[in-house]
Design a protein around this nucleic acid. Structure first.
Lengths: 356, 356
DNA sequence: CTGAAAGCGCTTACAG
DNA sequence: CTGAAAGCGCTTACAG
């Protein structure tokens, strides 16, 4: 006689609200009420349902939920207005739109508010407009410490979650920060200068900023420069700082002429921000060939990488950072996920070959 | 008299299959048949429906589709078995699992098949097992040109889409390749050596591989090295090649002892693969301090970066590459999207500071 | 405090 | 070659 054995294959079928309802002897509506805290349910029933849901390891069906409730999430984006169509800040909207395109089946809408890099007060004006649109979440670059804190106070009051991009500031509580570890990126830039500059030459550090104290990430990079040279630098020369409040060629020339004629042993220049090209331009015009290391792969800088005037750039990946910022925010809005406080992004070390 | 103006606000409501059906005077079923090429439809009707769909800019509702057809997609993953828990190939499963976690609401399942790096024939055995599971798509690292082509012929026959990761090979038709541009990464490695080596010193290029001809990406990197030095290198020294078929310390020592005693002007060493640490180990034991540039941020290499023996590493981001490979494959399976042939990923230039 | 029912947009098996 | 209808799992407005 032939014995046939039947296996009951556990296909791990999805557990539905209805399954919980049947097991608890209630209706689907009641289960829904418990699971989403809408409306009152008899405490014992509530407890029973939660217990069963846990036992059965209930996971909501995302597709079904979306089909029923295709909520639109509005994201307010507060970033600097690109000064031209190739500047650093053209990249971020690209990344955000890319992330939105990939966020199907969610319905995400980003509204962009661009503030002028010329006038600090523009930041707060655009922030005002952003608030008027009542977004569900905000992405911003808190470039100016003071103005940012004013704005953030209002976001906190209204419990609107916000993500920092590019620059981090202290004493506030963003959902997360997406960007470089500025101290560390300072160390990296310094190590590159160090590797290609004779040990007995002096090094000039150039900061181009209207208000250096109010510009957090330049300060952090500077700390990184100095930490590197103090701890592990090979270079034995002087480290000389110069702050230039404008990127106008004439003013830059004025300052650098002065510094370089007063310090004749300078072999390398480290620029703390993306306007490295301004210094490169100066060096080319003056016929100087100092080692030059700076920040960000923007077109103006790449031009001078290619001509050999800039040796290395330390560079963020703005498109990817913006993409991540949106992804995290959406994930938080849609799934209420908790998110780590910092998402430091690695920086790229970039030379001429990188763009071949 | 007061005039009131009513605006009809176009809420851009979603266009449904039903809307097309009504406009075309047919049923939803017919529209579905046209849109998905299932079953025959009268040619004129078909044309009309396509025209209307285009006019109305119809976009399928992903949520609804998923709700109805929660298909499980099986992905077969064919990658080298990590030799230990810190090796290069531990990263890829991490990236793939990460991408799966983020692929909700799609139901993706990855099956991993790991082949031994010791025996080429293991590749084909694991490939066999993979095929037996009848996956909907495949991710593989085609490390060995010949064996890979054999396997790929079968995938092509069964029209199973496949994505290359890490290594690219010619003459076949993957959905896409995710990885470095190996020629270019060769150029970058060479430029780093060039920047920190005196111009009159010779440069030694070391290839560690059982069969160099069958190892595509090492060959491409070597081409990149040479192209760089011919076109734009500052270095005027000789470029000397040595191939070492084993990474055993003793054999490496034997070869390098011979080469270095025969060529006393070598100032820098360029290693074409991830086993740069083997050469670093040799240099430390021999008390030599050549400039050393190699590949991949694996723990063994980072150790020698930190000790100062390795100057720079050119490094891929394996976790991210694996993540992307899965994302593209899923996108193709789910949305039938066409995908660009190559997705070259930028490489990282990495020094000691990068890991601080 | 609870249940029954409708409906989101798409797909599919069936009937013709 | 085509249509009518059921159903995927969840949410919601309504009735009680």
């Amino acid at each position: 006689m032939l014995h046939r054995v039947f296996f009951i294959i556990n296909m791990a079928k999805q557990v539905r609200i209805k399954d919980i309802a049947i097991k608890a002897g209630v209706s689907a509506g009641t289960v829904d009420r418990v699971l989403h805290n809408r409306g009152e349910v008899k405490p014992e029933t509530k407890e029973l349902i939660l217990k069963i849901a846990k036992e059965l390891d209930y996971k909501p069906n995302v597709a079904a939920r979306l089909l029923k409730a295709p909520a639109e999430y509005k994201i307010g984006v507060l970033l600097p207005k690109p000064v031209n169509d190739k500047s650093f800040w053209t990249n971020h909207p690209i990344g955000i739109n890319q992330a939105i395109a990939n966020s199907l089946p969610y319905n995400i809408k980003a509204d962009f508010y661009e503030f002028s890099l010329e006038h600090h007060q523009d930041f707060l004006q655009r922030a005002e407009e952003l608030m008027a649109a009542k977004p569900h979440g905000v992405i911003l670059a808190p470039l100016y410490k003071d103005e940012s804190q004013t704005f953030i106070k209002r976001l906190d009051e209204l419990k609107i979650p916000y993500v920092f991009i590019d620059t981090n500031i202290d004493g506030v509580n963003p959902l997360t920060y997406i960007g470089e570890d500025a101290m560390k990126s300072g160390r990296i830039a310094a190590s590159l200068v160090d590797a290609i500059t004779p040990v007995d030459k002096d090094i000039l550090i150039v900061n181009i900023a209207k208000s250096l104290v109010n510009t957090q990430h330049l300060n952090s990079r500077n700390q990184g420069f100095m930490a590197y040279f103090m701890e592990s630098g090979l270079n034995k020369g002087l480290k000389i700082n110069v702050d230039i409040p404008s990127d106008k060629n004439l003013e830059v020339k004025g300052k650098l002429d002065t510094v370089l004629s007063a310090n004749t042993n300078i072999g390398a220049i480290l620029v703390s921000g993306s306007r490295t090209y301004v210094v490169a331009n100066y060096l080319e015009n003056a016929g100087l060939d100092h080692v030059l290391v700076g920040y960000e792969s923007i077109d103006e800088n790449i031009k001078y990488l290619n001509s050999g005037t800039i040796n290395f750039l330390v560079s963020q990946r703005p498109v990817e950072q913006a993409e991540k910022a949106l992804q995290f925010l959406v994930d938080h809005l849609v799934n209420k996920n908790e998110i780590p406080n910092n998402h430091f992004q690695p920086v790229d070390i970039v030379n001429k070959e990188w763009f071949k």
